[in-house]
């Protein structure tokens, strides 16, 4: 196998008094879609911002490596990072309504990034911006380019955000809940668009979502996060139908099934009792306070993710009693 596009090793993000992401490791290959799922507050957005090196002021990367195309982004200076952002590594955000500058035309905002990284003339950049709007299927791009964001619907704005993100042909695109704020019919269109662009541009796609139905259809691999830790990883088929971690099982039971022939009427949705706040200060497995299968071994140390099957990792001491003991020893 060639060098993977992105390899994150033991990433830990620290606030002065909290560690919202702990020892997170995962990788994304070129052309691959990796989904990160997990409930609100599990650290998905912070992970994405850490990859961009755009963490909020109080947060910092306290340990770990982010190897992107063979170079560790954690060691990059701010000027070096600016050359990467928007060019080889791009990101789109959850809130299309507020993510565009209200006083600049959408054309100006696309041209911004093109002129910065591609050294294009004003004219050429504008022509390219029109092409990009066409690429993300904005109708009538010649006229739309001079519109201000408030004239566009949420779905259209998210398309413009995508045009900005792919303008310079990034190797990896991070999409943080790109469709959460959109209505269902638009969601599928936007995800289709992202998927098509991934294929055509050969880029990796890190798709952050808390919608499990998105995962089955669009992801090649799924990472389940809970309270800043990776609890399970595998292909969608395994994660959605044969999960091993109690948290993933709970998450599935709490989601309407999307498999054909089934509907939410077939069974009651079950909630996971307790709240993610209970993970705070937990010495062992972060999910233990809410886990129906919790055992004494779970209090010892944060369980490492171990291979339960080729390509399927889970971090649960009950599943792997021996590893849990080894980790403590």
């Amino acid at each position: 196998m060639t060098v993977p596009l992105l390899e994150v090793h033991d990433l830990t993000i620290a606030f002065p008094a909290a560690w919202p992401v702990r020892n997170l490791s995962f990788s994304v290959a070129g052309g691959e879609t990796v989904a990160i799922v997990g409930e609100s507050g599990s650290g998905k957005s912070l992970t994405a911002l850490a990859l961009m090196r755009l963490l909020p002021g109080a947060a910092r990367i306290s340990s770990g490596r982010i190897d992107f195309v063979g170079q560790d982004l954690v060691t990059f200076s701010e000027p070096a990072m600016r050359k990467v952002r928007g060019a080889r590594l791009a990101m789109i955000f959850q809130e299309p309504m507020t993510s565009l500058n209200p006083v600049l035309t959408i054309g100006a905002q696309i041209v911004d990034v093109l002129r910065l990284h591609e050294n294009l003339s004003r004219r050429a950049a504008r022509a390219r911006a029109i092409e990009l709007l066409d690429l993300v299927r904005v109708a009538d791009p010649h006229r739309r380019i001079d519109d201000y964001p408030h004239r566009l619907s949420g779905g259209m704005r998210q398309r413009v955000m995508i045009a900005i993100a792919v303008a310079c042909g990034p190797r990896l695109l991070i999409a943080d809940e790109p469709t959460t704020a959109l209505d269902v019919t638009i969601q599928a269109q936007v995800l289709d668009l992202l998927d098509g662009l991934r294929r055509d541009l050969g880029m990796g796609l890190l798709l952050i979502t808390h919608d499990l139905s998105v995962v089955g259809q669009w992801a090649d691999r799924v990472i389940v996060m809970y309270a800043g830790c990776k609890v399970e990883e595998g292909v969608p088929d395994v994660i959605l139908h044969r999960p091993r971690h109690p948290y993933t099982e709970g998450l599935l039971a709490a989601s309407p099934r999307t498999a054909e022939g089934s509907s939410y009427r077939d069974g009651l949705l079950r909630e996971i009792r307790g709240s993610i706040a209970s993970a705070l200060g937990e010495q062992g497995c972060p999910f233990r306070p809410r886990c129906p299968k919790a055992a004494p071994a779970c209090t010892l140390a944060p369980p490492p993710a171990v291979v339960v099957q080729p390509g399927h990792l889970a971090a649960c001491p009950v599943l792997n009693p021996r590893q849990a003991r080894d980790a403590v020893a």
Partner: peptide
């Protein structure tokens, strides 16, 4: 949010400050 978008484009602090923040 749009300031974060501007940073994610790789714009310098100066450009973000004037073109995106101060203007608004």
């Amino acid at each position: 949010d749009f300031v974060r978008t501007a940073r994610a484009k790789g714009l310098s602090g100066f450009t973000v400050g004037f073109r995106h923040i101060l203007r608004n």
